[in-house]
Design a binder for these strands. Structure first.
Lengths: 240, 240
DNA sequence: TTTTTGAAATCAGTATACAGATTGTTGACA
DNA sequence: TGTCAACAATCTGTATACTGATTTCAAAAA
């Protein structure tokens, strides 16, 4: 049933991904309990899940915070994409079901109106669906999980208004090339096109990144490094 | 502090990975509370984490079970390895710190005495440490997380006595070649050697898999497929 | 004025009580 | 004898009370 945790989790995740909840914002279990009308236990459970996915940070005995966005994380995620997505495309070319191919074609041709904010947001969703559908078509659940998580984290940057504003047509063209290769069952071509796509995306975002990343209290923090030590939470956004 | 959850989580994970807890075994929160002397809340939290890592399955309103081992999962995990381990090795060749290189050399040369059970178990741990150390050397935390999780899942198969018994020398030789390439800062060579290593491992395990996988109630289940539906839990191991 | 100390407040960690859901079993009826 | 329904048992989902850890702030002392 999961009548409380599951919807709460989804709502929280959505709010974080869409930057409705400011990256870096500090909060307590009780506070979210009030905000989302739930008791502490479900809030706690949902937050634990979100921490595991990298959307929330838990500071023991201190509280929680919406995971800040950092250049380091963005870089890591793009590097992950470069590793996984080309292989996913190649495997999808071999294993996708016909219905999945149909769905890909539909998603791949979605165009957004440059400058239209709501159309842009819809495009972010479509982009997510396309990439996860490709991952799903590999029939490898672990691969799907990884790709899905990477994209969910990436979407936060996109919702900040980050990278592919005004690159619409180029993006769509790249998507179509990937989908075409998959539909042709041409694994090598699919791998190549996907790799190209990610590389272009990285290049496009590189220049935009530095200027767009400063938002709210989100900082270029070194905290997402491997040792994962969390420094003093001085710079939390305080809410009245 | 996490004075209860953290140790409990570690102990549980260890027991599952080492197959101390039989794959497919059903249990309740209260039961584990008795077994590990903890109250339901920490047990619950630890189990949620383990579910996220794929070591436990939760059946809503019914209970928990130690995730069964399946050929499908094993295949997925090996496929994942084939995708990212070569890239991890290549990145490590470029980014590893000198201390990490030293540590790799140490881990890579660990030999186990064929036939000696405890030596074999130690080798499993060393193998895990080597592969995660390489991942850590990439400076990409997400990549590290994925590699670590994949190996933790794989280790359950190894602890069942699965694959590389009697392949000791070949394995060590492959490890050394990878480590050498990384120490030489030769990314292309490292990628190539790692790819070769995984491919060989897959080949070796293929023949052994079919006979060794039946253990306890662990079945060739299709439940780990993408839709993730859990069929009737008829075949649970019942404890008196 | 600065530093130290201690008390109060805050918040997560944990235990436990209660409610809702699901399953299994028993008994009656056809 | 077979089937269906009601009840009992079990277990998770949730709320809440309690505990202990950490921080903050103010007051007192140097």
């Amino acid at each position: 049933m999961e009548s409380i945790v599951e919807p709460l989790y989804r709502k929280l995740r959505q709010d974080i991904v869409e930057c409705e909840l400011t990256p870096g914002r500090a909060f307590s279990e009780a506070e979210f309990g009030r905000l989302y009308t739930a008791s502490r236990t479900p809030v706690r459970e949902a937050c634990r899940r979100l921490e595991h996915e990298g959307l929330i940070r838990i500071i023991p005995f201190r509280g929680y915070m919406i995971a800040p966005l950092s250049v380091a994380e963005f870089h890591d995620l793009e590097e992950m994409q470069l590793i996984f997505e080309p292989e996913a495309a190649a495997l999808a070319a071999e294993r996708a079901k016909d219905e999945e191919l149909e769905e890909m074609k539909k998603l791949g041709t979605y165009e957004y109106r440059v400058g239209d904010r709501s159309s842009y947001r819809e495009f972010i969703q479509t982009n997510y669906q396309l990439h996860t559908l490709i991952a799903q078509s590999t029939r490898n659940k672990r691969l799907y999980d990884v790709v899905s998580n990477i994209h969910i984290r990436l979407m936060r940057f996109f919702y900040l208004g980050l990278p592919f504003e005004s690159y619409g047509p180029a993006l769509v063209a790249e998507h179509i090339r990937i989908v075409d290769a998959i539909c042709d069952r041409d694994a090598a071509e699919a791998r190549c096109r996907a790799s190209e796509h990610i590389r272009m995306a990285i290049e496009r975002s590189a220049s935009l990144l530095m200027s767009a990343i400063r938002f709210g209290e989100a900082v270029f923090d070194a905290n997402s490094s491997l040792d994962g030590t969390i420094s003093n939470a001085h710079s939390h956004t305080r809410q009245t």
